[in-house]
Design a protein around this nucleic acid. Structure first.
Lengths: 237, 237
DNA sequence: CTCATTTTGTGAACGCCGTTCGCAAGCCTA
DNA sequence: TAGGCTTGCGAACGGCGTTCACAAAATGAG
């Protein structure tokens, strides 16, 4: 029940329109091809007018990244929840497949979210928004992973290999969104989870960035093989 | 003995100077922050003058990418060859570690080479130069991997999962540089190699792109664990 | 209804960018 | 020494992000 004055509604609508135009540019020209002036042109506005809604291009791009993160998370959740809860392994599989499907269908968005720091590379706080969004996103997988854990199917990897400062850091950053991850913080389980996430990211990023094209025209069988191996590693061992 | 007239020498020197300035910009401002005008400024030249040496900014950036690929390949080879040939597993390990070390030390260059298509995203032929360079680069690992194979330690994965058009493609693209890869083209071996390369790329890309910072402050133990698991997968199974 | 205040958008300007083109000066060769 | 090739310059074009003073519109209080 958030009260919304007429002004606020108009403003929100404009912001949405801006986002939409920027998104179209992202689609067409890639993360670095988004132009304030072009967005303004599409809205029939003056470039300066956009500064009433975003403090600059970087902010717009970052906002776009956050939106994409949300959208991707939605796709993953939808994929996961299409499989009944009685089959946690199937749910995790479905989540991974949804991640790849969305990413391959939205390469520009993927590059924006998971590529290197796009604008400059100040790196310090610039990516903080997108990184917290990334954490919230990864909890999507963590949930399915934890279901596996609870079912008692997942084993524990051999070595702990956890950073001492890690627990505090994750606690700090997952305060609101990621309650499930705190259970996964049992060091061995967390390491196992990270290892899986790394492999999933690796193959999807390679495919989306075209780094596999020299070897393979259709990366799906490769992905499925990697996924099968990954699931085997997660459930048995 | 390629004859070099005085002009050609001067020209080569200028090109090198341009590369050097561009490289400095890459280091400071990232792949998208390279500016023709800034390079020209640093050389005490007019922007237009640079067009006598490169047909445009994109060409300069691509040339830079090729140079970086060469440099990275050199680092990996050096790391690999620091381990005696009697220990093929150790050589492969050393190559992987050298890959990570160089990449972490040169994040901008890594982003340029392995990130998404930087300028626009025409994608078709734009990345062809960098992709052939990537193939040549991956043979560095293939060599060490093949040594393992010949030693008879490496097993074969379960399913073939090879693209039918793959053999011809790789034959076509590795004609000169990558004779060793042709032996690895035995489908199962190639799949195993690709799987390993994917995992290696995955963890290094995640670290360099800062995608692991939310979870871990020092990614090295994670890398070592992943590497150990990877080697185990490659040698035994 | 009126009037002051806040919000929204404009237009002009600044300095940067990549790129093109005509022209001058230098070098190499014949 | 004469001609051609190479190199670099200067000016210009259009596009970019961003700033700033200013006008118009919407809002809410009296």
């Amino acid at each position: 029940m958030t009260i919304t004055s007429r002004r606020e509604r108009l403003r929100a609508a404009t912001i949405d329109e801006i986002r939409q135009a920027a998104r179209a540019q992202l689609l067409r020209y890639g993360p670095t091809g988004i132009s304030l002036r072009a967005v303004a042109r599409e809205l029939g506005m003056t470039p300066a007018g956009l500064y009433r809604y975003f403090p600059g291009l970087d902010a717009l791009v970052q906002d776009l990244g956050a939106c994409c993160h949300q959208e991707l998370a939605g796709a993953v959740v939808a994929g996961r929840d299409a499989v009944p809860a009685e089959d946690p392994a199937g749910r995790l599989l479905a989540a991974c497949r949804a991640f790849r499907t969305w990413s391959v269908a939205h390469p520009a968005e993927f590059a924006l979210m998971f590529g290197g720091p796009v604008p400059g590379l100040t790196g310090r706080d610039a990516g903080s928004v997108v990184q917290t969004a990334g954490v919230a996103f990864s909890t999507t997988f963590a949930e399915a992973f934890l279901a596996l854990l609870r079912q008692g199917e997942a084993g524990t990897p051999t070595d702990p290999l956890v950073d001492p400062a890690l627990v505090a850091r994750v606690h700090e950053v997952t305060n609101v969104t990621a309650a499930p991850l705190q259970e996964a913080l049992r060091p061995e389980a967390f390491a196992l989870f990270l290892s899986g996430w790394i492999r999933l990211y690796g193959i999807v990023a390679m495919e989306v960035f075209g780094q596999l094209r020299w070897a393979v025209t259709d990366a799906e069988p490769l992905f499925e093989a990697e996924l099968a191996d990954l699931m085997q590693r997660l459930t048995r061992q």
